[in-house]
Amino acid sequence: MKRKSFREAECPVARALDAIGDWWSLLIVRDAFDGLRRFSEIQQNLGIAKGMLASRLQEFVKLGILELVPASDGSAYKEYVLTEKGRGLFLVIVALRQWGEAHLYREGEQRSWLIDVERRRPVARLQLRAFDGRSLDWPDTLVSKTI
């Protein structure tokens, strides 16, 4: 079955999923945030097939999520770095992480933590805020075609 493209969908969630909607893609972005920059590092960390990784990286470069730059060590290699557009996915990764922490671990089960570098403490849970700073939840929102 051929995958349906949502590239031109009216819904921004559908468009976002079209760009980054499979688990490999989000794990590649996670690895980029964790400082992995070379094809071989990402491939080894994820255990993903080289061809699949190459196609995902190529698509991320095409979408402007990653860019290829000369290797930081001065070698002939190239490295993948997040663009501003790619760095914009940080809150998406944090939201998925926090949802997983809250719902997919048993009490006391070993896990990794996202830590505030300055205070050396786990980061607070993300919260959706209204324009005036009020905390919002799902019932407090609606989707509108116009503002």
Rank of each mutant, 00 (worst) to 15 (best):
E10L: 12
E10W: 11
E10F: 12
C11V: 07
P12N: 04
P12T: 07
P12S: 06
V13E: 10
A14Q: 09
A14K: 13
A14L: 10
R15V: 07
R15I: 08
A16Y: 09
A16P: 04
L17D: 02
L17I: 08
D18P: 02
D18R: 01
G21A: 14
G21T: 13
D22V: 07
W23Q: 09
W24I: 14
W24A: 13
L26K: 10
L26T: 13
L27H: 11
I28D: 05
V29F: 11
D31L: 14
A32V: 04
D34N: 12
G35A: 01
G35Q: 03
G35N: 03
G35K: 01
L36E: 02
R38C: 00
F39W: 05
F39V: 00
F39Y: 10
S40A: 12
S40N: 12
E41R: 02
Q43H: 15
Q44D: 11
N45A: 13
L46V: 11
L46I: 15
G47W: 04
I48E: 10
I48T: 15
K50W: 04
K50T: 06
G51P: 03
L53Y: 02
R56S: 14
R56Q: 14
Q58L: 07
E59W: 08
F60P: 07
F60I: 04
F60N: 06
F60D: 08
F60T: 03
G64L: 05
L66H: 09
E67Y: 01
V69A: 01
P70D: 01
P70H: 00
P70F: 03
A71P: 01
S72F: 01
D73W: 02
G74Y: 04
G74H: 02
G74V: 02
S75K: 03
S75L: 01
A76P: 00
A76T: 12
K78S: 05
K78F: 01
E79I: 02
E79Y: 00
E79S: 03
Y80R: 00
V81Y: 02
V81A: 04
T83M: 00
E84P: 06
K85V: 13
K85Y: 07
R87Y: 08
G88S: 10
G88L: 08
L91K: 15
L91S: 07
V92S: 05
I93Y: 05
I93K: 09
V94L: 15
A95V: 08
A95H: 11
R97G: 15
R97T: 10
Q98W: 06
W99H: 12
W99R: 10
W99Y: 12
G100C: 11
E101A: 05
E101W: 15
E101S: 03
E101M: 12
A102E: 15
A102N: 11
A102L: 07
L104C: 14
L104D: 09
L104H: 12
L104Q: 09
E109D: 05
W113M: 10
I115M: 15
D116L: 10
V117G: 06
E118A: 11
E118M: 10
E118D: 15
R120S: 14
R120Y: 06
R120N: 14
R120V: 11
R121W: 12
P122E: 07
V123H: 04
A124C: 09
A124N: 14
L126Y: 06
A130I: 06
F131H: 11
F131V: 13
G133H: 08
R134S: 14
R134W: 08
